[in-house]
Amino acid sequence: MSLAMTLRSRQLKTPNLRQVSLVCGFPDMGFVGKQSVDYLIQELKAELFRELYSSHFPPHVLIRKDGTVELMKNEFYYWKNPEGAWDLVFFTGNTQAASPEGQFEVVEEVLNLAQKYGVQRIFTLSAHVVESRSPDKPPKVYGAVTHVELVKLLEKHGIALLERGLIEGVQGLLLGEARLRGMEGLCLLGETPAFTTPSGRPIVDAKSARAVLEVLTKLLGIQVSMAELEKQAKLTEEFILKLEKLEQSVLEKMVKARPPGQSYYV
């Protein structure tokens, strides 16, 4: 028996857009890309116009804190630039497809839509995981490009070119497929140590998201207030500092509690 076509979309509005750039971010390490896109959507008051559902998404729903239910989905938002310059389409979601087949299918759908709207440049946002990061300097932003001609653009904005490695998921796949279709794109990756709580839950790295947005807004030629993100970044820093202190005090207690004269490991 054949299996179903797995992707479904729900068109909520049909925006009239000109000169469009596509910006994409999904849950990633430190939620750098996701936080960046969500922040732009919130600050620019971008409007939801299309939803995607796929049977390759993880087979569950989410129960929100208020008790309402949410399906796993991807979403498109649009923002019409009042200055008359570049309009923006944002592509984000609470999940990615859990199989390569599903991820390819989603990316095909996104690029079809991008071509329909005449998208000229694609930006994907993600995280670049590092072991540690200097607390005194802003996080570095790395870049990857679909065409070597774009390297100069990275250099102009002081972005380090990422020459080796891989970009997982839609953030990488979208650019790879875009290149095959002759569309150009960049991935901006914010440096993050991918902090987690002691129980392993990821901590949103707002500081890294801020660094990514500093670069992205310049590339897009738009102005966005970073005040709220700065507040979040400060809270993150304080939280991480508390966690580090807690970790240190646990270690000290373990050392004190060890039986005298015995060798031990921590």
Binding site: P58, P59, H60, V61, L62, I63, R64, K65, D66, G67, V69
Partner: peptide, 9 residues
């Protein structure tokens, strides 16, 4: 409401 998180299957 009292549960927040995934509801699987």
């Amino acid at each position: 409401p009292g549960y927040e998180g995934p509801f699987m299957g």
